[in-house]
Design a protein around this nucleic acid. Structure first.
Length: 431
RNA sequence: GCGGGCGUGGCGAAGUGGUUAACGCAUCGGAUUGUGAUUCCGACAUUCGGGGGUUCAAUUCCCCUCGUUCGCCCCA
């Protein structure tokens, strides 16, 4: 009886991991350019962090959390998203006291949500996220968005779209919320059961409903932008202004509502427009969360803003666009051995090559020369070397350049000494 | 939580109510006793996710189950 991988999870195997490395490297480089520093928080937290931070009316908290009780009878939850943990750490470690504010952080790691799997959706998925905490300057909103767009651009994505909206401050949101309740209440019975539940808890999310999208009340619903107070409207205008300066195109979608409770002011999503991407097109989402630090027991500080993107979806989107990720993994020398004595030599020679930073491989199945050569070919080795009795006696081996089959007789020592030169000369000859 | 598709060798994939379960790739051996393309020859599923039923007979029909995948809600 073999044991299978849990539903909704995935093994990332060689051939695929190289792509992940490339993406991760690109992300770290970008964060360095933008001066965001990595933070690593635990993969599980007290359940309360998420119910309080993310909000208990959200889908995440209501039906998607991996919650368990540990041996000390504590309720813990595998993190469904990153922001709550980062803000918790910010408060707990008093990062608000650091001399340089805002505090600019990034994280990468697995997140967990109990959902049915489909294309681009997993129970364990990998997010890269960024948070800038401690500034209410709209230019940092734009910087955060720019960082995300930058990653996508560098990865090679072309068909992406930035959608933004402003949820406004608390005052604006309450005004809008009341208007929504007044608008939908009289006819709420004709809406789906989800929406009926949303009416009082979080009427904003009715606008997000796909089931009742066609209902005529939807189109006539009070629009958030009409309820933004002067301050909120000015803030949003500034964000757009900075995006313009950065030459980042965007589409304002007044119906864009993020699924987490802590958002206010700027909200945005980056979507893929690539064909064959599946039903889910959101690559990244984020927004501003003024007040979250206080909600989680921190002092009154300027607000924060951040986003999270899924690495799986980035890879999917790249594939949909036919983009190939360049990976650098090459084999310099494949050492073929014939017989016991030659194998001894092969073991030591391979080791010596590696000590000299030359990637080397050999056969571990005692196969025939032909089979070993075939391996060399399939592994895409640059060179092969065959060691047999003759070579052991003379100390001279034929170094074969597999691209054109040319061989040259050299001592073992010479190969090590001049490898870089030999390789570049062989490559030139080919060209 | 709800709805659809699929489950045949390491992988991809045909197929039919009845004893030969195609083919392709990969792998291994040989033609070539020490050299990778190609070519040729040969080997490679007592078995068609699991359980039950119908039948003289089931991989093929029915039921259940498990797995997987896509979609809905919602999101990354």
């Amino acid at each position: 009886m073999i044991i299978n991988i849990p539903r909704g999870t995935k093994d990332i195997l060689p051939g695929e991991t190289e792509k992940w490395h490339a993406i991760e490297e690109l992300i770290r480089d970008t964060c360095r350019l933008f001066q965001y520093k990595e933070i690593r928080t635990p993969i599980f937290e007290h359940t309360e962090l998420f119910t309080r931070g993310v909000g208990d009316t959200t889908d995440i908290v209501q039906k998607e959390m991996y919650t368990f009780t540990d041996r000390g009878d504590r309720s813990l939850t595998l993190r469904p998203e990153g922001t709550a943990s980062v803000v918790r750490s910010y408060v707990e470690n008093k990062l608000f006291g650091l001399p340089n504010q805002p505090v600019k952080l990034y994280y990468m790691g697995p997140m967990f949500r109990y959902e049915r799997q489909q294309a681009g959706r997993f129970r364990q998925f990998f997010q890269f996220g960024v948070e800038a905490i401690g500034s209410n300057d709209p230019s940092i909103d734009a910087e955060i968005i720019a960082l995300a767009m930058n990653v996508y651009k560098k990865a090679g994505l072309k068909k992406i779209k930035l959608v933004i909206n402003s949820l406004g401050d608390t005052e604006s949101r309450i005004a809008h919320r009341n208007a929504l309740i007044d608008h939908f209440s009289p006819a709420i019975s004709q809406f789906c059961s989800d929406c009926q539940n949303r009416l009082l808890k979080n009427p904003l999310r009715i606008l997000d409903c796909k089931v009742d999208r066609e209902n005529e009340l939807m189109a006539k619903a009070p629009k958030l932008p009409d309820f933004l107070n002067a301050e909120s409207a000015a803030y949003f205008k500034k964000v757009k202004h900075y995006l313009d300066i950065l030459n980042i195109k965007y589409e304002v979608d007044p119906n864009l509502v993020r699924g987490l409770d802590y958002y206010n002011h700027t909200a945005f999503e980056i979507m893929s427009e690539g064909k064959g991407f599946g039903a889910i097109s959101t690559l990244a989402g984020g927004g501003r969360y003024n007040g979250l630090v206080e909600d989680l027991g921190g002092p009154e500080v300027p607000g924060g803003i951040g986003f999270a993107m899924s690495i799986e979806r980035l890879l999917l989107a790249l594939e949909a666009e036919g983009e190939i990720i360049e990976t650098t993994d090459s084999l310099d020398v494949y050492v073929v051995a014939m017989g016991e004595a030659a194998k001894d030599k092969a073991v030591s020679f391979v080791s010596l090559l590696r000590q000299n930073n030359i990637t080397a491989e050999m056969d571990f199945l005692d196969r025939k020369v032909k089979a070993q050569m075939k391996s060399a070919d399939r592994l895409n080795a640059k060179f092969s070397v065959v060691i047999g009795d003759n070579e052991l006696e003379s100390g001279i081996v034929s170094l074969k350049y597999l691209a054109n089959g040319k061989q040259q007789d050299l001592t073992f020592e010479k190969i090590i000494e001049d490898f870089t030169e030999i390789a570049s000369r062989a490559m030139e000859e080919l060209a």
